[in-house]
Design a protein around this nucleic acid. Structure first.
Lengths: 331, 331
DNA sequence: TACCTTAATGCAAAGGTTTGCATTACGTTG
DNA sequence: CAACGTAATGCAAACCTTTGCATTAAGGTA
């Protein structure tokens, strides 16, 4: 990367008059292997010379680079960006670096990234919003250190997961709707191959129905997770005489689109149609104060994921973190 | 990273009955070094075995890993996220991976990241929103392949830069204000050690003043780049009898904060106070249709930066990309 | 046929760090 | 004093790929 060669272990060893092995052991803090006097002397020298071990050599030796990969649909979505932010912070704190790849929800691209991350020898892969793909299936079978974030692994429950209890959260939103006597209610759910979307919907539906209400088929709309698709879904939903009194949206972005359409129809929410989103975009407070939503603890999720990569093999557990219903205005 | 060792060059060589050198040359497409028949045979074998060269070994050999670093204040800011997105796309297209580090505008953290990226042997470093720091100064002096994005290098003009002509853009906003006869006008500018903020302000001021208007000191407010600081700045700005008819904000986030404060005072923009932002957050269309702004070509910026890292040494040029004034509503 | 040229391939070193094993030095015990 | 144990250090191989140089083979020319 630069002309003037970097300082190497051998240089330091020569300067200290010891072997590279000793320097290496000091750098890595290998216990019971080097005398206190030598250790101190070398540490001082290392500081003086400002020596930094080259991760490149270290990686080859350990067959693992000091990096963790985050694969995510994209980070222009504020929710994904927040999780990326939390994860980056946690990873940096451990002295590792974060490699970021955007899958754009495309199985082919996801597989390309997966293969590349493996050849880069990353210490772990965080799959945020994974889509089913052959490469992912293979990676899971090989028991690579993968942690699924927000969306569970599409290939069996044997993989680690960090996120929230989407089923319960969906139910909680339904409970809130019932409490306020919103009736009828509608739901715009996301892609059902995403566990997050599916479970939210199921939880919502089950609570609504177990309360004796029914969720009319016309009020269950399938959509994507973008503003545009939220707009389109709402256009379809409201293209009838009977309107729902409240809509549970797949995420905040969808709710923005829904709000826009409601505005066009003069059904200004929340007075006419209450909207409930998911994720809690930090901009909501300022730009969408009319939107209630489910706040997901993004930073905590990042921290937890980073922890999992630290301590040896990743346990195939599911870590469900607490979420919070944010009720804004009169939603 | 995984128990079952990955396929290695030697394995493929053995399977093909040739030396590792030949395989390497085929993989890398070294011209005039291997016969067409062998090349084809090996390519087929490689495909069959699904061999992927281990980047880890490759990096040591080349003393450079197939990665490019992006250092940015953070990616929860939609503008930074957009540039990161564009850069990631361009880098991925070249077969490299992107390493992401958040500096949080903190010189210490920035230096830590810079040192780490160097030891990781990244092929290039994109500094998005750089802050002055000792390590950065050193890195620039060592002529590492650094490209400054959006904010110019704080240490002389000898470094590559990709962004827009902020001075001219600021002037254009002023021109727009003059055209609409907004008077008086105010500006909430960002940190002046950021070339982006400074030049925008200077361009704005110069056009206003050269038109014979004056920019009263009370209408020039210094602030940060967050919503909160935009809110605070606007609170100060409007804490007088005389109000500006329009405010040029450091970026869209600041404008959101300003809008919020205007709303609290019943000075709903743009009828009473017109707001102009910068960056063009993609959410604006849906959530802030009252906000005019300067659209920065984020994707193009990312592409250009990636190009620079591809072709050998980075030329110390400044690449100014076209921007666009987005006039929304009656701003 | 002997020599030369060119094309194709192989050999082996290099790149920086880690680590199992060997070695040294020193102090202790019998 | 010899035998031994322990703590500290060094040696060298290993990790995987790339590449300069050497080697071989093949084809052509005198």
């Amino acid at each position: 990367m630069n002309k003037q060669k970097n300082l190497t272990l051998a240089d330091v060893a020569q300067a200290a008059g010891v072997s590279t092995a000793t320097i290496s052991r000091v750098i890595n803090g290998t216990p019971n292997k080097v005398s206190d006097t030598t250790r101190e002397r070398i540490l001082k020298l290392v500081a003086e010379l400002d020596y930094q071990p080259m991760q490149i050599g270290r990686a080859l030796s350990r067959m693992e680079s000091a990096t963790v990969a985050l694969l995510t649909p994209d980070t222009r979505n504020a929710f994904y960006a927040s999780i990326a932010d939390g994860l980056e912070q946690a990873i940096t704190a451990t002295g590792k670096a974060m490699v970021l790849g955007h899958t754009r929800e495309d199985p082919v691209l996801q597989d390309r990234h997966l293969a590349q991350m493996q050849s880069h020898g990353v210490a772990g892969i965080a799959m945020l919003g994974a889509v089913p793909s052959p490469g992912l299936s293979k990676a899971v079978a090989r028991e690579l250190p993968i942690v699924f974030v927000n969306r569970k692994c599409p290939y069996g429950a044997g993989s680690a997961f960090v996120g929230i209890d989407n089923y319960r959260a969906g139910g909680d939103v339904a409970g809130h709707f019932l409490e306020r006597n919103y009736d009828p209610v509608a739901v715009i759910h996301g892609p059902l191959n995403s566990s997050a979307s599916l479970e939210r919907y199921e939880g919502f539906r089950d609570v609504i129905e177990s309360a004796g209400h029914s969720l009319s088929e016309r009020f269950v709309i399938h959509g994507g997770l973008t503003i545009e698709s939220g707009y389109r879904a709402t256009r379809d939903l409201l293209d009838h005489d009977e309107h729902p009194r409240a809509i549970f949206c797949a995420n905040d972005a969808v709710a923005y689109g829904a709000h826009h359409r409601c505005g066009e129809l003069g059904l200004a929410s929340p007075e006419r149609i209450a909207l409930f989103g998911f994720d809690d975009n930090p901009l909501n407070k300022w730009l969408a104060p009319w939107l209630s939503t489910v706040a997901v603890p993004c930073t905590d999720i990042g921290t937890r994921v980073a922890e999992l990569f630290l301590g040896g093999p990743v346990p195939p557990r599911q870590y469900l973190l607490p979420y919070e219903l944010k009720i804004r205005r009169s939603a």
